[in-house]
Computed example of a mutant assay.
Amino acid sequence: MSEKIVIYQKPTCSKCRATISLLKENGQEFDSVNYYEVPLTVEELRKLIQKLNVPVRDVLRKDEPAAHGLNSASDDEIIKAMVENPDLMQRPIVVRGDQAKLCRPPENVMELLKK
């Protein structure tokens, strides 16, 4: 598989740093996107979630204080809230081609490297 790997991450996140270390240890080249510095658009996040092939709520960090008001929100409202407040997004998300993995735990990234 030769598709470029992209990791959407927050540099201060321990799971993000561990995932980056695994990519480096396995000799993988990748692009890193700090979505705090380069915010995702609603459409970009929607595409990421489609690649993850999980419900929108699985990408929401439910323990974040800002998430408490989203219990009855629609998927579109949750996506918009995550774009406006990146702390609401689970991380890191690693993409390779049309596949993506939420790397919590970081070892989930290995599934993308086997393909």
Results as ranks from 00 to 15, higher is better:
T12F: 13
R91P: 00
P39V: 01
Q50P: 03
D31G: 05
R91T: 03
R91M: 07
C13D: 06
A18H: 13
D31I: 14
I20N: 00
P65H: 01
S72C: 09
K10G: 10
L52M: 06
E43P: 00
L45I: 08
V83D: 03
L70E: 12
M82K: 03
V33R: 08
L70P: 14
L22Y: 01
I5W: 07
L23M: 07
P65R: 06
D63L: 06
V54A: 08
K114H: 11
N85I: 07
N34V: 05
K4V: 14
P65C: 06
D98T: 13
K101N: 09
R17E: 05
A73D: 02
Y35L: 01
K101Q: 13
I78M: 08
V38T: 15
I78D: 06
P55R: 15
N34R: 05
N26C: 02
S2M: 15
S32T: 14
A73W: 00
M1T: 10
K101Y: 02
Q99N: 14
I20A: 04
D63I: 03
I5Q: 05
V33Y: 06
V54T: 07
P86S: 03
T41R: 01
V6W: 04
S32L: 12
G69L: 02
S14N: 07
L112M: 09
I20F: 01
D87L: 09
R17A: 12
L22N: 02
N53W: 12
E43L: 10
R104M: 08
I7V: 03
R57Q: 06
H68K: 15
E77L: 02
V59F: 07
L45N: 07
V109G: 08
E37I: 11
S72H: 13
S21F: 12
A18V: 10
P11R: 07
L113C: 05
I93A: 10
D58W: 08
R57W: 01
A66P: 01
M89D: 12
D87S: 13
E3T: 14
I93P: 00
Q9R: 13
N34A: 04
E77Y: 03
K4G: 08
R46V: 05
I78L: 11
E3V: 08
L23W: 06
N71H: 14
L22C: 07
I7W: 01
I7P: 00
V94I: 00
S32R: 11
T41I: 02
N85K: 14
D87H: 12
Q9H: 14
L52S: 05
D76N: 10
T41A: 02
P86H: 01
F30T: 13
V94D: 02
V54Y: 00
H68Q: 14
L48K: 10
A81W: 02
I79H: 09
N34E: 00
L23Y: 04
K15V: 00
K24P: 06
P65W: 07
I7C: 00
L40S: 11
S72P: 05
